[in-house]
Design a protein around this nucleic acid. Structure first.
Lengths: 214, 214
DNA sequence: GTCTATATAGGGATAGAC
DNA sequence: GTCTATCCCTATATAGAC
């Protein structure tokens, strides 16, 4: 593996573990056992490393957010869809740990991050409309707008919330399934009884599976 | 006004305006037109200023969170209740702009902040139960738990979300009413039709009022 | 490509005069 | 209580040898 790529991988690891503001270029170099000078040969500065990591994140996230257009989707499909998004967030969770701090130094990142938020919300709305058309749920248009926003907020801040909740015990939470459930649970009041049962079934399958996997 | 208090007031202003990590003790001293040495005569360090500000916030927040126990409450009362909480968050919004960064240096703040999150969630749950008892809404116990969590997340991160959404235009949002509406909107699917109409009425009153006030 | 050495700058914090 | 002067430390970034 090329040094340049190793810098990116190591930076991502340390950023996720310690938080981007707490990781210096020296920390990255030390961790890799190269000199700081070497690191600066490959990247002009720390922001360039972040920008490049963000580009990888952005591509992956846009792919994950591709709306499921297939009309024959069931609850499990939606669950997996949200799960893929959470996996991508988890992979680059330093972006969601101190979003404002990371974004405020770089206008381009702000725009890109906002485009992702837009797309998240659009996808949520589209899914609601699809479910509406399938008569799976019943919801007014303006209510759907606000629901989509609430879903976006939960999907965006769940890890941050969990992080704060577990700060005292210093354990990394890693319970993506709980987050997925939390997001999907926004739909429960709109589902008919058989829909709720399906959701419960999917949820218990995944919550059990993930807890037994450790 | 005593210098010590002026330091607190000025710090809060600058923290809210620029974000706590971007404000140095020198900035605070300059803004007040005193010397840094003078500042350090009154406070051992920056963290002590933050801790003291947090104490004020904590007291105010716990007061605002006192659950409305009166059984004869209507939609407007709940709206105002959420509004008071948002006002308090707005007053100390630097805590919600970079929560992880601000909290991670100080274990006591972590505990206090988590106690506030607990109380937020407890209050949401209590209100749901009260509405349930008044037959205003119909909701299962475990569903109420997840709903209370979602409400807590929206109430906690709304300003952060808005901040990121408006970063590019550099305007401070200041639309608390939209946040209140967003939080209360979690209830809509559970309300009967007349409840939804009441909510719409309250919402339009307040959204108009706040937009005409500027 | 990689290293060592170093320049630079900024923020946190203290000492001691007034 | 307040000021000036200053120290220390850390992080970013560069220069130049190998």
């Amino acid at each position: 593996m090329k040094t340049r790529d190793r810098i990116l991988v190591t930076s991502l690891e340390l950023f996720n573990l310690c938080g981007e503001p707490n990781v210096t270029t020296i920390d990255i170099a030390n961790e890799m056992e190269i000199s700081p000078g070497n690191l600066y040969y490959h990247f002009r500065n720390k922001d360039e490393i972040i920008a490049e990591l963000f580009q990888v994140f952005e591509a992956g996230m846009h792919e994950a957010l591709q709306s499921p257009t297939d009309p024959g989707l069931d609850m499990m499909d939606y669950w997996m869809y949200v799960h893929m998004i959470f996996e991508k967030i988890w992979e680059f969770r330093f972006l969601y740990r101190d979003p404002v701090t990371v974004l405020e130094r770089n206008e381009k990142l702000q725009k890109k991050f906002n485009r992702i938020l837009d797309k998240k919300r659009d996808s949520a709305l589209l899914i609601l409309q699809m479910m509406q058309e399938q008569s799976l749920i019943q919801i007014a248009q303006d209510e759907a707008q606000r629901l989509a926003t609430n879903i976006t907020i939960t999907a965006t801040y769940w890890l941050n919330y969990q992080h704060i909740r577990h700060m005292i015990h210093r354990e990394e939470p890693d319970d993506l399934e709980a987050g997925v459930y939390q997001v999907v649970s926004h739909l429960t009041p709109y589902l008919p009884d058989e829909g709720k049962e399906m959701l419960d079934a999917v949820a218990s399958t995944y919550l059990d599976a993930s807890s037994s996997m450790g």
